[in-house]
Design a protein around this nucleic acid. Structure first.
Lengths: 341, 341
DNA sequence: GTGAAAGCGCTAACAC
DNA sequence: GTGTTAGCGCTTTCAC
């Protein structure tokens, strides 16, 4: 008989274990959950029987009875973004450790599909939701979820949302890169701004602050707006960047991918990096620990915010009644220097 | 009053909509699911009321009643592997399109945690499970899940498992790289074998086949066993590779990361790539579409197998009674040539 | 120490 | 067309 054709055995239920041991469903349920109300003898007896019958609890039924699923939903914009991949991994690990399951959805930076994902999660009755938001100003639907009673935690700052947040301080990160470049003597810095997410405003501000602090004129920074964050975009932007008669000597990209594209363009156009042009990325992802590329970058500590974020939301769940106020926590990222010349 | 402190409104239930409209729960339920048995008038009335009360169904209760969760579990070894990241993304997209939710778990290539993840998914009553297996010979626990009645689909071949499979034909992929290198005239080819997953045996076999077909001696291939698949590993292996008095002129790594490490080593040791040493990767991931690196690589079509895999498992679910036999489908990957010199 | 009964929110079978 | 009833598998009073 072929394996694919075997009739599946009916699943063992609490009732079956009850019948097998002669105890009531109730007692079996208590035993399986290790209630101290039962004497060891009965507990062992029941556990052994359950083991033998290959019983495992129906989590759905339990969830319905408990009004809690021990499941957390994660909404990311795009898991292909290496930073968010790392976040997803860390979050999954932490949740598993804590005995929680994780549901996953991607918004693809579409507010509409973010909305759908949130609704789906609400319907699934997840106990809490972690969100890397799709848009930095359209977030009413996220707030609505929190107000409806599902704890929400943001993994990127959404100013004015009033939601629990654990995120990277992008202003501090960009400030660090800028200080680094200025320290190397650069006096014309171009920025490749990937646009649209709130973080980028902060990045620009961080750079500006460093320039002001160094006592340099505001036009030390030349901002170029990329319509995207991909390597291809970075590559395409370069002619415009270099068209400036007063060419920049350093470049800050708002993502590593953009930086990679810029790097390629320089390679193809005989501009040595970092000799003639310093290039800095952001995220420390495309550019891995073991990078072959001469890119200095900001380490977006996705694992750290994930760990803290998970701890925060679980803590909130365990103190459902305590009504903890929302809180925003920003992590300052490190600069990773890979090219100093 | 602070937002975090607002008392959550109680959720609207079927009963509430029933009361509000004067119909029975049953009728409301039918209306919400668009039953044709109801006249449009009542349906509209009910839908409007539900809308107003901000009703959305409790998926947990529905699942319990239906004995189906419309949820699929995905078990990956490690989502940081870019190939699997892509798989995760594609799978999530396809499932969402089909109206399914996705639970996610990582095994970190530990059979034990793979086992735990499968158990958890069974307990959560997922309708089906997609698995990128942790080990190529220990899979009894996976088979057990299938036999217990939860449809399982493998994303990598597990010979002898008898389980439904949609996977990449690694033998064909490796054969292609080898043919390419041999065609360029290489006569000493080293392989950096990342070990442990079944695919690698196939990769070795594929290369050997190409060599045999070209009428070259078996010792054209020199296999080096890396204890891992990271860039760091690739870097560390290189001295051993180059210690051979009869140095190889080409290198096939079993992952792109390994290849990247090798590339870095060559760079630091004054060996030009691909001039003095051709390097080929595998997966087409570290090495993205827009790569700056001179690495030819095999395109592990994770998105394709994911799409097909999801379609297959959903099809199986929709024909639960049909008892379709298990089937193995192998996709032949393309070679992406980035360095020909 | 253990059991009986009610209920979590929904769907399905069968009345009317 | 619509309502009634029973039940999904578990937990939780509250008796005994």
């Amino acid at each position: 008989m072929e394996k694919g054709l075997v009739k599946p055995k009916p699943k063992t239920k609490l009732k079956d274990v009850a019948k097998a041991t002669g105890f009531s469903e109730n007692t079996v349920s208590l035993a399986l959950r290790g209630s101290p109300r039962l004497p060891e003898s009965t507990r062992d007896l029941i556990l052994r029987a359950a083991e033998e019958l290959n019983y495992f609890p129906n989590h759905i039924a339990r969830s319905l009875a408990n009004n809690a699923t021990r499941t957390i939903g994660l909404v990311l914009t795009d898991i292909m973004n290496p930073t968010l991949t790392l976040a997803a991994r860390t979050i999954e690990r932490e949740l598993t450790k804590a005995g929680y399951g994780m549901m996953f959805a991607a918004s693809d930076t579409s507010v509409e599909s973010e909305k759908r994902a949130l609704l789906r999660f609400q319907s699934y009755q997840v106990d809490g939701i972690l969100v890397y938001p799709a848009h930095h100003r359209k977030f009413d639907h996220i707030v609505a979820v929190a107000e409806a009673g599902t704890p929400v935690l943001l993994l990127a700052e959404l100013r004015g949302s009033g939601l629990d947040t654990v995120a990277i301080d992008d202003m501090a990160g960009a400030y660090k890169v800028a200080c680094h470049l200025l320290g190397l003597g650069h006096r014309r810095i171009a920025m490749l701004d990937g646009g649209f997410m709130s973080g980028n405003d902060d990045k620009r501000r961080g750079i500006r602050r460093a320039i002001r602090q160094a006592g340099l004129p505001a036009n030390t920074l030349i901002v170029h707006n990329a319509k995207g964050t991909s390597a291809t975009q970075g590559y395409r932007m370069m002619p415009a960047v270099m068209a400036d008669p007063n060419k920049p000597t350093a470049l800050v990209a708002s993502t590593d991918a953009l930086a990679t594209g810029a790097l390629r363009w320089c390679g193809e156009n005989g501009i040595s990096v970092p000799g003639q042009m310093a290039i800095a990325g952001y995220d420390n992802t495309e550019v891995s620990e073991f990078s072959v590329l001469p890119l200095t970058t900001v380490n977006y500590a996705a694992d750290e915010i994930s760990r803290i974020g998970v701890a925060r939301i679980l803590h909130r769940l365990e103190n459902k009644e305590a009504r903890l106020p929302a809180e925003t926590q920003l992590i300052e990222p490190e600069l990773i220097v890979r090219a100093t010349t």
